[in-house]
């Protein structure tokens, strides 16, 4: 047994972090928020150039043929930077659903973005800028081109995630080669890994503030009440991390318990994200409650993703059905 990431996997994540740190600052993220599109075409092209978007496509579709263990650290980095647009959706469930179709090479070259609404969501994220929307069709998944859907833009919490209501004409779309439950697993794990990155970043921002901000003649981070608040949040984040890694392994090998493992990962990281957001806000005090403070960019991403791809109740029930037996 070897429960660690390879040096290649870690190196790729490190280079992605370096690119995002240099080329995608919170100032740029705010500019995307201001456009109202929830999308950064230049960054999307950059991620495509780096080969990030096509990781999970087979080589026959100009992809890397990678599995979830190869992308999990990348997804975390994307979350750490709150990269806008349907990035984890396209990379994970998008690639797994659309490989071998006419859309696949477009995912690889950055010309096709994929989003999904597989749980009956009233507000579909990223639909306005995506080319394909994955929708539920019984136990199957249907790929529908955006142009075939009637979209109505609505307002959302997170400026990196445009929202629309959609009207779906019946009989449209193509059934793709992924079962609905497998698509849920893939998307939920993508969301979980991204959310881990968002959560870590919130604690980093809070830590920076706690070192700088002085009250009663000392940095507030020296106060035990602040230390313990942050330590408890870190505890949840760090215990979600191995659960996400294990779920990646289970998905990669098609383990019988993969749905349980993905759901466990999502429950733990959602819980960690709730705690990290609350703690980071509390450490900041009033400045954290402002539009000006960068923390909001990440809190809002967290609050959007905590219930996305299955609420905590949904995922906890999936775990309990697997562990305790199906509820009668």
């Amino acid at each position: 047994m070897q429960f660690s990431f390879s040096s290649d996997q870690r190196d790729f994540a490190a280079s992605l972090r370096e690119m995002l740190t240099n080329e995608f600052t919170t100032k740029q993220l705010r500019e995307i928020w201001d456009t109202g599109t929830g999308h950064d075409p230049a960054l999307w092209a950059r991620l495509s150039d780096m080969g990030v978007l096509s990781m999970m496509l087979p080589e026959t579709d100009a992809g890397m043929g990678a599995d979830f263990t190869d992308v999990i650290l990348l997804l975390e980095e994307l979350g750490r930077a709150a990269v806008p647009g349907p990035v984890f959706e396209t990379m994970t469930v998008g690639a797994l659903a659309l490989h071998g179709t006419s859309f696949a090479t477009g995912i690889a070259d950055g010309s096709v973005a994929v989003t999904a609404a597989l749980l009956g969501e009233a507000n579909v994220p990223h639909a306005g800028m995506s080319d394909v929307v994955l929708l539920r069709d019984g136990d199957c998944v249907s790929a529908v081109e955006r142009s075939a859907l009637q979209l109505t833009s609505v307002c959302g919490l997170d400026g990196g995630r445009s929202l629309s209501t959609i009207l779906r004409p019946t009989g449209l779309g193509t059934i793709v080669a992924i079962e609905w439950s497998e698509a849920i697993d893939a998307g939920a794990l993508g969301a979980a890994a991204y959310l881990l990155g968002v959560s870590s970043r919130m604690l980093e921002i809070a830590g920076d503030y706690a070192r700088e901000r002085r009250q009663f003649g000392q940095p507030i981070g020296a106060f035990q009440a602040v230390k313990h608040l942050m330590a408890d949040a870190l505890l949840k984040v760090e215990f979600a991390r191995p659960a996400i890694a294990r779920a990646a392994w289970s998905m990669a090998v098609g383990d019988d318990d993969r749905s349980r493992d993905v759901s466990m990962a999502k429950v733990l990281v959602a819980d960690a994200a709730v705690k990290a957001a609350r703690s980071a806000l509390q450490v900041h005090g009033a400045i954290g409650y402002t539009w000006e403070c960068d923390l909001q960019l990440f809190m809002k991403k967290a609050w959007a993703l905590i219930p996305a791809w299955g609420t905590t109740t949904f995922h906890r029930r999936r775990v309990s059905d697997a562990v305790l037996g199906v509820r009668v």
Binding site: M1, F3, E238, R246, M264, R316, V319, S320
Partner: peptide, 20 residues
């Protein structure tokens, strides 16, 4: 039922954390 499930996840999470 949810509380017992949460405990199972905690113990499993601890096992994974230790293995890592």
């Amino acid at each position: 039922r949810d509380a017992v499930t949460d405990l199972w996840m905690q113990a499993e999470g601890y096992k994974l954390h230790t293995a890592m």
